[in-house]
């Protein structure tokens, strides 16, 4: 091979890179590429914790709080986490309440995630789950604090303006001790408030589903056991679907991600091969 060909390897036109990248992202949307999933330890812990919660008979009348801080702008990660989580809750017949502090979350969470799944699993609003609705971010801290001692008094009405005490699912839910778990699906820093104001001796379990970019900041909390499980971005959602054996969109996106990562690594290798070969060729010419 001559040096110009080597040189080409380290100067691939960026448009070629972009076109291949786009293909690698689009193809898995259409075709299910059966890549094996190896759940990370944090995803496994997330799943195991909820399994344990579901196995505990004492939790039958308790509720899981699903806190959503995300909006359509991060739905590429958070929606699939939410979907896998709600699926798990419904499969295990756990009662849950959704709550949000983001103006745009409620619509996307209910219409794209909760309602279609409720239909699929025969979940009835008010009997099996409830939507506490949206609260402004300004009252975030006060609301979380209020939930510790007085849930009906803090939430008062559901998203449609109905007093929450009128729902069967809320009959035995009064204080923190009636909460089976907290799941936080978020692209923003919402953890400290829950850990600081709501949790007591890691009870109820706090599970965390952040965007991938946020995840590294929270390893210390995992280490200390304050966060019992974490779904890292879309990889976490894919892991979770794998654990649930309900491979759906999250897994497909996780495959797309695997392909894209492989592409980038390949590009880096090609670039370096070109770099060294060209340098060697130049040295030969010089001598």
């Amino acid at each position: 091979m001559n040096s110009t060909l080597w040189n080409r390897l380290q100067t691939i036109d960026r448009r070629i890179i972009y076109a291949v990248l786009l293909l690698f992202i689009i193809i898995p949307l259409f075709i299910d590429i059966p890549l094996p999933t190896y759940p990370s330890k944090q995803s496994q812990d997330f799943y195991d914790t909820l399994e344990k919660v579901a196995a505990d008979k004492g939790n039958a009348n308790k509720i899981v709080i699903v806190n959503g801080m995300w909006s359509p702008s991060t739905r590429g990660e958070n929606q699939w986490q939410a979907e896998a989580l709600i699926t798990h809750l419904m499969q295990k017949h756990l009662h849950f309440a959704t709550l949000t502090f983001d103006t745009q979350n409620d619509t996307v969470m209910q219409t794209s995630v909760v309602e279609p799944l409720a239909k699929k699993y025969g979940y009835v609003y008010g009997r099996d789950y409830v939507n506490w609705g949206y609260r402004p971010n300004a009252v975030y801290v006060i609301t979380i604090k209020g939930l510790v001692t007085n849930i009906p008094g803090t939430i008062k009405k559901d998203a449609h303006g109905t007093p929450i005490t009128s729902f069967a699912v809320m009959k035995n839910v009064k204080t923190r001790s009636d909460v089976a778990a907290v799941v936080d699906i978020t692209p923003v820093e919402s953890t400290e408030t829950w850990l600081g104001l709501f949790e007591q001796n890691n009870s109820p379990p706090y599970l965390f589903a952040p965007t991938a970019v946020m995840a590294p900041t929270y390893y210390p909390y995992l280490d200390s056991g304050q966060i019992q499980g974490m779904l890292t971005g879309i990889k976490g959602a894919g892991d979770y679907e794998g654990l649930l054996h309900t491979k759906s969109f999250g897994s497909r996106i996780a495959s797309a991600l695997s392909l894209v990562y492989a592409l980038i690594i390949l590009l880096v290798i090609i670039g370096n091969v070109g770099h060294f070969a060209t340098r060697a060729a130049k040295r030969r010419e010089a001598s």
Partner: peptide, 23 residues
Amino acid sequence: AIFGSTIMTRMALLIDRMYFIFH
């Protein structure tokens, strides 16, 4: 390390845009 851990979120956004177009 920061570079490597940021890629996933960025790619997820593009995947979501493609999802918007094709779905």
